[in-house]
Design a protein around this nucleic acid. Structure first.
Lengths: 128, 128
DNA sequence: TCCTAGTGCAACGTTTGGTTGCACATCACT
DNA sequence: AGTGATGTGCAACCAAACGTTGCACTAGGA
């Protein structure tokens, strides 16, 4: 279910500084290493390294403008990353719901003394 | 919008090995460092360190059973982590949609030659 | 008691996020 | 053109994190 590319996207997005950078780039449309470092608690070099990481996984791409190097978010790749986040979140959410349902069923069975209604399951999950 | 606790949860969940561990713990209900390392491509010590990290941020909690130390997922905290993932994903998704809408509006304005309908914006986002 | 299975701690190496320092390129101004 | 300010790039260095190996300790079973 998880590929190496997914892990690359995750680790790229897992760093808080890089998430802030993506936020800033999305808000402003584009930005440079120096411009971003102005609004981040790290130096320009750190930002440049993060931009290199983001560029390597395709989340941003650079365009030289005069002496500047303007970076811009790659919408398609970021959408892919968002899909990964949603996929993992949904998977865990489904597991948690199943656990909760089972716990509630046991609780009902203990207090009510009758057969726990485990039938209304809409999660098509065959466990792991 | 992002707190230090959020960053802790993110970095805990950002590691691919820890994500696999959470998957396994959710699937099996509980597990030990040795048992998990059997199904992971890392040594028991690495798993133990990861379990310590997850324990520190409250995503799992341990219970000594005989000579074993069984770990179990903390549902509430994992739900919180899932909420964080969903929040970031939603935020980015919203930004991407707005960008797409603007691009489409410009495209319509160029080809159709009439006023681009930018009014139906339901994203209450004031930029920044 | 002795052996096995599970855990914990310590040392070590590698990668990563961050810093400082310096050199190079480009724009603006006189 | 010359000069200074602004923006980048590269290299060295430091600290934390992920992973490994090795050894010591503890609890269950023969």
């Amino acid at each position: 279910m998880s590929t190496a590319v997914d892990d690359d996207l995750w680790s790229a997005v897992g760093d808080p500084t890089r998430r802030r950078m993506l936020d800033l780039l999305l808000a402003d449309g584009s930005g440079t290493a120096t411009g971003l470092s102005d609004r981040l608690p790290v130096t320009r070099q750190a930002v440049a390294k993060h931009l290199a990481v983001l560029d390597r996984v395709g989340l941003v791409h650079a365009a030289p403008v005069g002496r500047e190097k303007r970076y811009q978010v790659d919408q398609a790749q970021l959408a892919r990353a968002v899909a990964q986040l949603a996929a993992v979140g949904d998977a865990w959410d489904g597991r948690l719901r199943r656990i909760k349902q089972i716990a509630e069923a046991i609780e009902r069975g203990r207090t009510g003394g009758r057969t726990p209604p485990l039938s209304p399951r809409k999660e098509g999950d065959s466990n792991g």
